[in-house]
Design a protein around this nucleic acid. Structure first.
Lengths: 201, 201
DNA sequence: GAGGTTATGGCGCACAGTGACATAAGTCCA
DNA sequence: TGGACTTATGTCACTGTGCGCCATAACCTC
């Protein structure tokens, strides 16, 4: 085993160039889901439409449904960043009510895409099942923030309740949005959070 | 095609007697899940332990995880019945805060079983995924009740929020219960509902 | 015993997801 | 130019879920 050659961290280390990208795959897959339905679309179909093999699809996404959450990492990061930037003296409910809608904000040109995505997320049971992990993470961000603000541990009743409240408000906002697509999702979320997030006594 | 013979509706119409029952199967399966883990237990394992075939298992439960929700139909029915029995003049939040904990009430001898079940429900991601359908139904019961009380339709923001609030409180109560198993689940749920269910303005 | 009814078992299939292994297509360096 | 290295891809085999189809077993009533 020869010693590894020294390399600069950011350098191009060569290797075969990728045939596609996660976003391109997600674009193709979501189109198929909307056209034929989620369960009626197999991974083989997606792979064929993208010109890659089935096995390669699973290297980009570990689950068929995961293509619907390409943007989630960015949304989670925004949520965390907004909370981290909250003034230390601000009550936790105010911080949550400001941070969550901002995290879900998307440029207007993504509106149609977001609406299609929401229809799949709320309308297809098989997709709802796969959402569990994302919901858990979204909730954990809020719970951890409240627990830290209150100086308590992970077993704090109020922190647990606040985390579930933020998730509930997010899901409720999407549900209401689908019934009233002309309104603004972050705006709806703000109203839902006002209804659901418990206030410090 | 000869005309069917007249039969009384409740009469025993013969047929091969069943080898087992849904509850017996659930008992065996839950034990295996706790011992070996949910994903490490195959339907073949459950069927073998119960002395039936794999195909027969799927006639009792359409999904491996469904054995964990044998009691759900009864809980849903209790929730609906409690809400239907609410006095017409009672505010909807008070009705929800009384009905939900009662629906989740179990006799003390089921406590260990319920705790084991809760551990599986909250601790195993694959199980959490399969819970989506039950969550949706639990939520719908509350949403429909609030919408009826408010005289609105399914697109009512407050009704949607209340439904999600009841579900959030239920999940939060289970989460808190796992961290504090000595407390009483319906009691915890009462406190969570007080924090999360929006009040009529 | 015949006919009807219900539970079961076996077989095959489509599909999701995973691990092992070979190969293609780039970069870098001698 | 040629090798060494690196990364993306493809092929194959395998486990497991869930479902449709059909034969069969075990009960009842007449």
């Amino acid at each position: 085993m020869p010693p590894p050659r020294p390399r600069r961290p950011g350098a191009d280390r060569g290797g075969r160039p990728a045939l596609t990208s996660a976003h391109a795959l997600a674009e193709i897959a979501q189109r198929l889901f909307l056209d034929r339905g989620f369960e009626e679309t197999s991974v083989d179909d997606i792979a064929a439409a993208a010109g890659i093999s089935r096995r390669t699809f699973f290297r980009y996404f570990s689950t068929k449904a995961d293509v619907l959450w390409v943007e989630s990492a960015a949304e989670f990061a925004r949520f965390r960043a907004e909370l981290a930037a909250a003034p230390p003296g601000e009550p936790y409910d105010a911080a949550l009510r400001r941070a969550a809608p901002r995290a879900l904000h998307h440029p207007p040109e993504h509106r149609t895409w977001a609406l299609h995505r929401a229809r799949l997320l709320l309308g297809v049971p098989a997709v709802q099942e796969k959402a569990a992990a994302r919901h858990a993470e979204w909730r954990r961000i809020a719970t951890d923030f409240v627990a830290a603000r209150r100086g308590t541990g992970p077993g704090d009743l109020v922190a647990i309740a606040a985390g579930h409240a933020v998730l509930a408000a997010t899901l409720a906002a999407h549900e209401y949005w689908l019934a009233h697509p002309d309104e603004d999702l972050p705006d709806i979320l703000g109203r839902m959070l006002a209804l659901l997030v418990p206030r410090p006594e």
